[in-house]
Amino acid sequence: MMSDNSDAGLRSVLGDVLGLNPARLAALTPQSPLLGALPELDSMAIATLFAAIEDHFGLMFDDAELTGETLTSYGSLLVLVRGKRRP
């Protein structure tokens, strides 16, 4: 579970899109809430975030995968990314 680089990559993308400083990025745990907790995360920012994740990892999401539940917490987003990378 901890042997891949999804966690570091995802933190880096979140830092770029949300402008989070290294201290806030390092403080993210799987339980950290994303949607609702981060006012910057409107629908355009969510679309940008998913596009940046796709670019970073070379993935392609379906519309159906881009749900609010995916962004409930940092952990739920990480699960999606890991699942996509290892189908």
């Binding site: 969510i46 679309a47 596009a51 519309d63 881009l66 749900t67 609010g68």
Partner: peptide, 24 residues
Amino acid sequence: ASLLRQLLRARVIAAREAGRHEDS
């Protein structure tokens, strides 16, 4: 197409939050 896809997705996501279904 990349720019357009993001815009379409933003709309799909906003619609879903409002309880409507839209498709890119």
